[in-house]
Amino acid sequence: MANKKVKVVVLALLPVLALGWLALRAFENSAAYYYTISEAQAQEVQDQKLRLKGQLVKDSVSYNSTIPLLEFALADEDSQVEAAYEGVLPDNFHHAEEVIVEGKFNAQGKFVVSKLMLQCPSKYEGEE
């Protein structure tokens, strides 16, 4: 009887351990830390994947469609950060107010964006 119980526990534990191992292994390169812009500015965290959320500074946007390279600035109450995104200008970019960017700071203190997410104020209440 006790033997059977041990067997059941081991059998139940095995998949859980497998999942834990997978998750732990996957965690390393995929975690992005949420920072406010002032925090990110103050700490100058390099080589760490970050996620920043800020207001798009409207007159900071420049887009070179031949490379294509999109440059803009994000701001919160008391700081501002320059960001660059190598990719096609998203349709709703100029319309966005709040922008979430994921990426890393380069040596010049510019935020190199690997993933760009936009939140639009009103129009896109919509569906998935």
Partner: peptide, 18 residues
């Protein structure tokens, strides 16, 4: 006390073997 987001590579690495 800090939000940490896991991106696609996490989901791919966990789910693909399963």
């Amino acid at each position: 006390g800090r939000e940490i987001v896991l991106d696609e590579s996490f989901f791919n690495q966990v789910t693909v073997p399963l």
